[in-house]
Nucleic acid binder design. Structure first.
Lengths: 207, 207
DNA sequence: CCCCCCATGTAACATGTTACATGATTGA
DNA sequence: TCAATCATGTAACATGTTACATGGGGGG
């Protein structure tokens, strides 16, 4: 039914494969050191509200990142209030973030896990150069095109049988993907100017 | 931090509040009686692939629906193969589905829980009349407009400070919402023709 | 005196993921 | 006999949700 991998031996030593929340925290901590409370407010007051600001999600997730060696927490006593634990990213954490952010967009990543693509792109600025952005946007546009074609075939096939609402819902999905493809191709132009492989101005790499 | 409801006494006897998967199964079983295996194939081979086809998700979820009295499973021995459990929706299940599908779109439902809105609309055809579709699409368009305005304010506020990638990611989100609003207003026209409160042709209500 | 803000955490619970188990029939 | 298809299920595990706990400082 679902693809059953025959190879079970590999046991990739590397990627511990975080949850979306884990990567979100990692990417935000890379931008600048932040406490759990900082992150909670961020999830409350910005478009990142896709993630829950609940302490029962964030504090355990930060603990996992720290146990995995991807961030380190340092206690900050300077405030008169209760001491804060401020987290910074480690080289290992930076490597994990870059690996996640720079991998090409897949069908799976586009269709399941909503929001992941945008999040990866938003963090790409800090960890990859313009070439990485180009690769990302090109693979995104290609995956979207494939998905749109697949959805259009479905729409044509169901045209006779399905209900009005079913067809309309599918058309909504198609148009959302079309809008994203247009955005990807427009964004691509921002990175094509600086196409020289090593020259030109480049964006910062590390914080 | 998050809104703490003061009223704890209510304990609404009614809505057991299913997960998205629970509602998806309920809506599909309403269309016609289906087995767990039917539903798995559906999640594999259609744009509903947003949901996992894994048996470890679907069979327990069907069991919960049945224990809650929202569906009933009947064993089908007609096939020469292993007997199938075919589920049908109950009146209670139909009521729960209609309650979920007809409630107005909220900010929460639009921004968190991706895909919920489209799913609710797709199922609305079977359980509500054109007036319900109109109400749904109008509340959806209004919520999207509000969200777009909020995102645009954020974009303007971050214009100076944020990175190129952050701004572009936000623009992607805005354009996706705009595409959805255009769709909602176009879909609305499908239901405004038959605007007479009780007359005109009407869509089927029950299976 | 009480409540709100800052700030961190934990416990119980429900759910989805991954992997495994079972079992009959059909076709190579 | 082996593999594939039909068809249902369970067990271990990680994670998010909800609600509760704690504790100091400032303002009305």
């Amino acid at each position: 039914m679902y693809s059953t991998p025959r190879t079970v031996m590999v046991r990739t030593m590397t990627a511990p494969s975080l949850t979306p929340l884990g990567y979100a925290l990692l990417g935000l901590v890379r931008q600048k050191p932040r406490s759990g409370y900082d992150l909670r407010r961020l999830f409350e007051s910005t478009p990142m509200a896709y993630f829950s600001s609940s302490p029962g999600a964030i504090y355990p997730a930060l603990g996992r990142l720290e146990r995995g060696g991807l961030v380190v927490g340092k206690v900050d006593h300077r405030q008169p209030l209760r001491p804060r634990r401020v987290y910074e990213i480690t080289p290992k954490g930076f490597a994990a973030l870059r690996a996640w952010v720079t991998k090409p967009v897949t069908h799976e990543g586009l269709v399941r896990r909503e929001g992941e693509v945008d999040l990866r792109f938003a963090f790409l600025g800090g960890v990859g150069g313009p070439a990485a952005s180009r690769r990302f946007l090109e693979s995104l546009a290609a995956e979207i095109d494939a998905e749109v074609m697949s959805l259009e075939q479905h729409l044509a096939a169901m045209r006779a049988t399905a209900t009005l609402h079913g067809r309309l819902a599918l058309e909504s999905g198609i148009e959302v993907y079309r809008a994203r493809a247009r955005w990807a191709r427009r964004a691509l132009r921002h990175f094509e100017r600086e196409a020289s492989p090593r020259g030109g101005r480049r964006r910062g790499r590390k914080p």
